[in-house]
């Protein structure tokens, strides 16, 4: 048994509680089992903070579940609205790329980032796309950590609001 598996077992109850707090309800045991399988499948090297790694993996699983539900309900809506601009599978479109991002979403993301200023937009990209830690970005750009956090919140707020305007339209 790997060190990570041992830590999983000793944190089993705490992780289960975490999943329930995430609203997993009756599915919490199943999700925990899924997490266990994923840990065994992932061939990882030494992990600096195994407890944090487990919580993050559990957190990601819950976010994935929520996203999958959300996307299937959005897709159902898109289908029932029939000839929307981005209904996939229309035969005239060369679209093996089913997950093609709708053009309106691209435009909305572009516009939203333009409203938060260049620095916040850059911090957002560095953090969310290049996956650089907030502290490293602060060092790289000569800013305080709280400024980086505040910029990130601002960029995320603008993107969330833009997303909601699309969803409500």
């Amino acid at each position: 048994m790997s060190g990570l598996e041992a830590i999983f077992l000793s944190h089993r109850d705490a992780l289960l509680r975490f999943l329930r707090a995430h609203g997993a309800g009756d599915a919490a045991e199943d999700v925990l089992h899924e997490l266990w399988l994923k840990l065994q499948a992932a061939q990882t090297g030494p992990i600096a903070s195994p407890t944090g790694y487990l919580y993050r993996a559990a957190n990601n699983l819950m976010l994935d579940r929520y996203r999958a539900e959300r996307q299937s309900s959005l897709r159902d809506r898109a289908w029932s609205e029939a000839a929307g601009p981005v209904v996939p599978d229309r035969s005239e479109d060369p679209s093996p790329e089913r997950a093609l991002i709708a053009r309106e979403t691209l435009a909305a993301a572009d516009a939203a980032l333009a409203t938060v200023g260049e620095r916040a937009a850059r911090i957002f990209r560095r953090h969310r796309i290049d996956n650089v830690a907030q502290k490293a970005i602060a060092a790289e750009m000569g800013l305080s950590l709280s400024t980086v956090e505040a910029d990130l919140r601002k960029a995320m707020r603008a993107l969330i609001d833009a997303r909601r305007r699309i969803d409500e339209a």
């Binding site: 707090a21 995430h22 609203g23 819950m62 976010l63 929520y66 996203r67 959300r70 991002i101 979403t105 691209l106 909305a108 993301a109 939203a112 980032l113 957002f124 990209r125 969310r128 796309i129 995320m156 993107l159 969330i160 833009a162 997303r163 909601r164």
Partner: peptide
Amino acid sequence: AAAYHAISAEVAEMTEAVAA
């Protein structure tokens, strides 16, 4: 949890758009 999930999903979707 409901608010956290919604926000995280919306940010993730928009991040994909920004990445593109």
